[in-house]
Design a protein around this nucleic acid. Structure first.
Lengths: 211, 211, 211, 211
DNA sequence: CATGAATGAGTATTCATTCAT
DNA sequence: AATGAATGAATACTCATTCAT
């Protein structure tokens, strides 16, 4: 069994090595320019080897997506530290998502890639993992909302549904960043995002706090 | 001058013919599989001819996007007819966007394509046109909100900002449809959308109606 | 006959217009990027019109080559003004060719294009004109040499052959400019050109002057 | 390690195969008509395979240029065998370059292609190799001149600079072959080349021999 | 005279994936 | 377990030229 374990460990090691290559390419050249051949070259591995560890290109990207979600989670947690009170926490998460989409644009792109590509489908394993990681992030939102409800800061909303909606709004707005030069020309994009967050946060504030 | 006019008309005719080919390909094979060569083949035209009428692939897609926005607008207007009152109108628009993203998925995809691809940029003319069409749709949202404010049904919010946020939320949620099999597994996607619309509509309802 | 003349004049006018467009393209985008369609667009003429005035692309380029040769001639004459004595005149011409190849690189390129392309052949008319212009430039060299011979500054060489050789050397050296980063790496290209001119000039200096 | 060696050998084999196809195309259809797709078809290989062995079109051409330089070198060495004395050796090299440009015109063209195309640049490796091969040929000239100087046949000139100039003159004159039907019409091209060689050789002949 | 629509073979290059070794 | 050679369809786009009007 020691053998089996070692095998397993080596396997994980190799996967990490491949992902490191893929990640550096992603950040250096962007999603589109990141091909399997390039990954192999950078990882100093044969192309075939890549396919031994990953079922295909999408799976590598999916792994990168996982990473991205983890990075996002870490950023949220980090920023959450200084945030006092449910409302401030909600705002903090929003702010972090905005930062994430700007500073870790390639991770954001890859998340958006899977969200936007109708064709791409994961296998069950992958689904499971994405599911978990994603939910962990959403959970941060959910529990923030729940905490607010418990403390009376927020109204009794369906915390999970609200969280999903909150995220959808943010994600949509991040895509709208591109409209800065067209539909949002002359308008203040940053103010729009601020408005949306204000509005959504305000929309669940407990009545006692509204007055 | 009759000649010039005829030329112009024929030119428009050809463009329509090319767009028809592009559109049918888009709907049959999807965005990704729609290439300039295929469009030319289907239109029974030389590839060069395509480039005589359109500056490049993106311009064809942009035209298709315009179409998509117009289709969306028409759908919204059609559905709006039966809707009485600002609130019901807002809900109607949301419902229509959901329908649009499902029934005219390829048009939705192409709109999302331009929203999601950081690299792609339009020339000024195109920007202008997209701008106008897009704003026309957003205007439907804006004026609905304004009407609601005027009638006292809605609170005095920034109508345009709220409209953009409303659209962002819907757009984000439409992308989340893909999560049905992962993060939203076991949850009711439809109910989520319903919840979001309810929440947003509720969030601007005039205080008199809230109680 | 007044009509005929007017026709002729208008025809020349149009050709000039086309060449102006071609020339500006040549200098802005280079030889390779200059296509007939682009020329037509810039000249605000139909493509067909271009073909009414020029037999084809090569003919336009040939006309540009003529221009280039004329520019070269003008430069040589201008620079020759200050040059006293046959030897200094010869050096002046050499210097001018070097300047021409650097400052009017696109004209140089087009001359080299016809010199280098084995396939391209002119019609008789064109041949005649190129012939004349080219000879006019070579004549400047020839007569400089002849003057030197007459004055005793130069030995009694075959003036025309020497002139052709002189030009061939210069032209070859201009092409070698590209070797600066390879074969001539670490060597002084400018000094090489200087050496060559010195050597050739020295090689025909009359014995009385050599001492 | 036997495997690695075999791989390497096979790799070289394939490259040779591709170059054979490219070479035969070059000689049959000329430089311009030689495209990567045609090379692939002739080599009975997929296009992608070509790119597996060569970084791109220019690299194939560069390899062909190397070949050409080697062919030239071989020709020079072969012809040099019968040549006695520095002067005769210099003349021999000149004669060979003339023959090379006529008999191996396509190799000459490809050498001229890299000399004439301002845009095309090699990578460092390629530079190095071209550098070496080119210098090997120039060395033949240089050492011939040096031998002449040592023997007192030639004056004490800068051997390398003279050699480069000598080559430049020859190369320029080879390009002028095209002028046979225009500027050199009625003149004896062959005599011009002969004159140039005579002149250049004479120009470095030691004084004792001049009288 | 002038137009400009139409062509379609052509360009270099990329790509994810397979499979025999 | 690992390799890397091979594929070939696919990509967007260009071009000189023709010809009916």
């Amino acid at each position: 069994m020691g053998l089996k374990e070692r095998r397993e460990r080596e396997r994980e090691e190799r996967k990490r090595q491949i992902l490191a290559a893929a990640r550096s390419l992603l950040f250096e050249e962007g999603l589109q320019a990141t091909s399997v051949n390039k990954i192999a070259r950078r990882a100093e591995l044969g192309v075939g080897t890549i396919y031994f560890y990953f079922a295909g290109k999408e799976e590598i990207f999916a792994a990168l997506q996982e990473e991205g979600i983890e990075v996002l989670q870490a950023m949220i947690l980090r920023d959450l530290e200084g945030a006092k009170g449910p409302e401030e926490r909600l705002r903090s998460i929003a702010r972090t998502y905005v930062d994430f989409s700007r500073e870790k644009g390639d991770y954001f792109d890859i998340i958006n890639y899977f969200l936007s590509s109708p064709g791409v489908m994961f296998n069950e394993d992958l689904k499971e993992r994405i599911d978990q990681r994603g939910n962990r992030v959403v959970s941060l939102l959910v529990s923030t909302v729940e905490a607010g409800i418990a403390s009376g800061d927020f109204r009794k909303v369906d915390a999970r549904k609200f969280a999903m909606m909150f995220w959808a709004t943010l994600h949509g707005l991040m895509l709208f960043r591109k409209l800065k030069t067209t539909m949002l020309r002359g308008e203040d994009y940053h103010a729009l995002v601020g408005y949306a967050v204000d509005h959504l946060v305000g929309s669940i504030r407990g009545e006692s706090n509204t007055g």
